[in-house]
Each structure stands twice: as structure tokens, then as C-alpha cells.
């Protein structure tokens, strides 16, 4: 800090020295007094400027930090490959949805999706093509959702989850049908699939009356049970079971 206020300190010292002289009987020197006053004016102006610029610099820093936080949030919430939500965000949000929907005594539908014979797809067409397939399927799923509160996430590997707050079984079944149709329409060749000549998905769907204290895991587990039924029944289809 030494030296940072050198000029201010010198002005103060000069003024004090003159005051001491005056007290000892020396006449008041108007010129010196004027110099001190004009120097003080200048320093005051610099001080005001310093605060003005510093305030702006702080705002800039906070804005920058907020931007960085948002970037980090994006990294934390989204799946890098497909650009849709990741499992972590989905679970967090599903927990929040259950809490909110339970208050209004509403319903909730959850879908679990799996790309049929995806391991064979990767083995046949390579991982890069596999990644492209995952991206296309993710896009087809999100394109099938129209309400703002609905959301899809990559649950892991070739598995996806869709959460439809306030959607009853009828509405959720329509969404499941739409997803299956949209993915069939992509017509991504899959010669090793036993379900079709192109990439297909199997879906498990459950709908329940949301009650306080229900766990998000129980909805995912129930949807997963339905998913296995679809797989056992020949894939490229959805199965609905009530949430109990």
C-alpha cells in the first residue's frame, strides 16, 4: 500500500506544515493555500473517477461470473452427446415434479425408452455412426413433445426417459405412439435388428396419481418393468402399466 497514496500524502503533509508555520506566527500564504485547494480538487476528481470505473469493473466481473455459472449449469444439466437433459438433471427435476404435482393432486406419466438391438447396431456400423443414431433418436423424442412442461433425458447408454407432468394415461399413450412413429419415420437402416429393417425403440409407460412422499425411483422402476414387457413382446412397441 506504501506509495499508492504518495501524492495524497504529500498534499496533506504540505498543508499540515503550513498550518504549523501559521500557528508559530508566520503569515498565511494565500498562494500555498490555493495550491493545496486545487490539488485537493484534482485528487477528489480522481477519486470520484476511480470509484466510478471500479463500480463498472465490479459489475462486469459479476456479470462474467454469472455467465460462467450458467455455462457450468449447462454442462451439469445436459448430455454432451445428444444435447438433451442428462440423467442427473432428469432425476432432480422428476423429484421436483412429484412434489409439485402431489400438491394439486394431479397425475404423472413416465416413459422409459430403449433403442432396440443398439449393441448390434454399434458393432455393425461403428461407434461414430452409433453416436449419430443416438442424436437422431434424441431429437425425434423431443420433437414428439409439445407441452413446455414435458421433458426428455438421456438416461444412460441407449436408454432415454420422458417425463410428462399432468398427463393421463390416454395422453401419455398418444405421446408413446408418436415417438414410435417418429423414430420409424427416421428410417435409419439397421440390418442386424430382429424387430425391423431400421432402428426402432421399445417403450415402457406408467401413469399414476401423484401422492406426497412417492419416490421418483418408483416411477422409473415401474416404467422400466413396462419396458421389459415391450422387449419380451417383440420390441418396436410400447406397453402401459398402471403405477401402483
Amino acid at each position: 500500500m506504501d506509495g499508492m497514496y504518495e501524492r495524497e500524502q504529500k498534499t496533506l503533509d504540505d498543508a499540515l506544515a503550513h498550518l504549523k508555520d501559521v500557528r508559530s506566527g508566520a503569515p498565511v500564504c494565500a498562494e500555498l493555500f490555493e495550491t493545496v485547494v486545487s490539488e485537493y480538487k484534482l485528487l477528489l476528481r480522481h477519486q470520484q473517477k476511480l470509484i466510478k470505473i471500479t463500480d463498472k469493473a465490479s459489475t462486469n466481473m459479476i456479470t462474467g461470473q454469472k455467465e460462467q455459472i450458467n455455462e457450468l449449469k449447462n454442462i451439469v444439466h445436459y448430455d454432451v452427446l445428444t444435447g438433451i437433459y442428462n440423467r442427473r438433471y432428469m432425476e432432480e427435476n422428476l423429484r421436483r415434479v412429484i412434489k409439485l404435482v402431489s400438491r394439486s393432486g394431479g397425475v404423472l406419466s413416465v416413459l422409459m425408452l430403449d433403442i432396440d438391438y443398439f449393441k448390434k447396431y454399434n458393432d455393425t456400423y461403428g461407434h461414430s455412426q452409433g453416436d449419430t443414431c443416438l442424436r437422431s433418436v434424441a431429437e425425434a423424442i423431443t420433437d414428439s413433445l409439445s407441452r413446455a412442461e414435458d421433458f426428455a433425458a438421456r438416461y444412460g447408454g441407449e436408454e432415454f426417459a420422458v417425463v410428462l407432468p399432468h398427463a393421463d394415461a390416454k395422453g401419455a399413450k398418444m405421446i408413446a405412439e408418436k415417438i414410435i412413429a417418429n423414430i420409424n419415420a427416421l428410417n435409419i437402416p439397421h440390418k442386424k435388428s430382429e424387430a425391423a429393417k431400421h432402428v426402432t425403440v421399445s417403450i415402457g409407460l406408467t401413469t399414476g396419481n401423484v401422492l406426497h412422499g412417492q419416490s421418483y425411483e418408483s416411477y422409473l422402476k415401474r416404467a422400466d418393468e413396462a419396458l421389459y414387457m415391450s422387449k419380451n413382446n417383440g420390441r418396436n412397441q410400447y406397453t402401459y402399466i398402471d403405477f401402483v
Partner: peptide
């Protein structure tokens, strides 16, 4: 891009 008040004082001093 980011700077504190002491930096502003240094810069102002240099510029003047």
C-alpha cells in the same frame, strides 16, 4: 477484462 480498484488507480496514474 477484470480488474480491481487498485488497478484502476495504477492505470489512472499512468495515463495522467
Amino acid at each position: 477484462k477484470y480488474f480491481n480498484s487498485s488497478t484502476v488507480k495504477v492505470l489512472l496514474g499512468m495515463l495522467l
